[in-house]
């Protein structure tokens, strides 16, 4: 009954002689992704959050660079230190991208257009992940160059050609997207903004610090410590002589894989729950 053709010129739904017959094919991932992109870019909070995150990262990198008096440390890691507070904002933005659907009622409109729910979540994660990655890389490279330029006291700025430097800068940018995606997945699981934000902040920051201090065996697997000690370093941090129980941090690639695994697990659980539960 949905395929009746209307030939009038001024009918009730305002179509001007357009056929109501639905053309072939069906909606696919790319349609869902286009919808999510329009949704993401038409909210001012998206640009504010990502902009503040990037500017904050660069400002901290500059401050650390200007204050550096000893050139023997990992100067790349120093320049990228501002990326870590920004993770909190991308994580929270990721949460809001899903929980705001529920708090506003938008979820009804979203699922009316894309009723295949795992597809809707996959499109949301892909679009948000891509935007967070772009801003993450922008912030990371800008922090690296600005932090290097701010170095004084005769210390030479690190260059991208040095061993491990390009990897550290690129991986730091990727950490924005991955922490953001963990937020998206947790948002889909928990559905309530405050609870999901508490989980992201608690899981990424608080738990990381507490476990890092108390249980050295688990410390290398804490997201925040992965970003700080595995992804953004040019050389694995070494333990100073005499410190008995020093955690052995993951390599940069293992750290990236672990963070990606966290994001994948919460997104898959979130997609599964989304499909099972009443919206």
């Amino acid at each position: 009954m949905t395929g009746i053709t209307v030939s009038g010129t001024d009918n009730a739904s305002g179509t001007r002689g357009r056929s109501r017959a639905v053309s072939g094919g069906h909606y696919r991932f790319r349609h869902a992704a286009r919808m999510e992109w329009v949704k993401l870019r038409t909210l001012r909070s998206t640009w504010w959050t990502l902009g503040i995150t990037a500017v904050g990262a660069v400002a901290i990198g500059v401050g650390v660079g200007a204050g550096t008096r000893d050139g023997s440390g990992d100067l790349t890691n120093n320049a990228l230190v501002g990326m870590v507070p920004g993770l909190l904002l991308t994580g929270v933005l990721g949460v809001l991208v899903t929980t705001a659907e529920y708090s506003s009622g938008m979820i009804r409109s979203t699922l009316a257009a894309i009723p295949r729910r795992p597809l809707a979540l996959a499109a949301k994660a892909a679009v948000f992940g891509a935007l967070a990655l772009a801003f993450g890389e922008l912030a990371s490279f800008a922090s690296f160059f600005a932090g290097g330029a701010a170095l004084g006291h005769g210390i030479a700025a690190p260059t991208l050609g040095r061993p491990g430097v390009l990897r550290a800068v690129v991986f730091s940018g990727m950490s924005f997207a991955l922490i953001g995606l963990i937020g998206v997945g947790l948002g889909a699981i928990v559905r309530h903004t405050a609870a999901a934000i508490a989980m992201v902040v608690g899981g990424v920051y608080v738990l990381g610090q507490v476990v890092g201090a108390l249980a050295h065996a688990a410390a290398p697997y804490m997201p925040i410590l992965i970003v700080a000690n595995s992804l953004s370093t040019t050389r694995p941090p070494t333990c100073s002589a005499g410190s008995g129980s020093c955690p052995q941090m993951l390599s940069a690639w293992s750290g990236l894989g672990m963070l990606g695994l966290y994001a994948a697990v919460v997104l898959v659980i979130g997609g599964w729950l989304l499909a099972r539960r009443d919206a």
Binding site: W37, T110, A112
Partner: peptide
């Protein structure tokens, strides 16, 4: 195929009416 109205506020308050409808149009 199906147009539906459940509760009036089924949109994000921060988005304009045009942006809301544009997103839905893009999806289908």
């Amino acid at each position: 195929e199906v147009g539906s109205l459940l509760e009036a506020r089924s949109f994000h308050p921060g988005r304009s009416a045009r942006a809301h409808l544009s997103a839905l149009a893009a999806g289908n």
